[in-house]
Amino acid sequence: MSSSPPVRSNWLFAILLMAALVFVVLGRVPGWVGVSAIVRAGYEWALLLGGVALLLGVVNVLWLHIRRIALGQRDWVLSLALIAVLIAVAGAGLLSPTGAASPLLEWVFDAVIAPGQAALFALLIFFMAAAAFQYLRIGRRGGAWMLAGFLVILAAQTPFIFAWLPPGSAGVADWLLNAPVMAALRGVLLGSSLALLIVGLRLLLGRP
């Protein structure tokens, strides 16, 4: 496999992508009114495409779980529950004159979705604690620097610790965020963007 055959580029995709790129770039140039209208139409298509993709996702989920039930696969009961809830929620929204603001949907949001999402997000603190325990070590390579930066930022952002800090210490945190942290972050962002651009071009040219 050292001499894997070159991958052909799909010229239809390449032309469409290049055309979209040119139109989007020209749409940013003032004075190109006609191009702006085309670009706007493209964005509206993207909006429609997003909606259709959501519907396709729903159909895909339905199909997948109907198959699981039909084949009697493991945990098919959960698939059945998922389909029942999906039908109930979608039906409530479609049949109610208030649409997405129907009482059942409001109840589902308040009683299930909101606390569920909040609870799952709150679990992050445990992962953060485990990561802090494991990586903020003086003995690790670079660990002392990470630990120092962590302590400075934590102190500046925690109200009761900040109240005990000497005046001017907040400037240290501000400088840290604005100079080294920002420089590193921008470097990573720029580097990954350039890498993405090059990978995309290579893919378009059939040289992945």
């Binding site: 964005y43 993207a46 909006l47 997003g50 909606g51 993709a53």
Partner: peptide, 10 residues
């Protein structure tokens, strides 16, 4: 609005 950040220019 579905479609993510792509549709923001609208």
């Amino acid at each position: 609005w579905p479609g993510g950040a792509t549709v923001l220019p609208l």
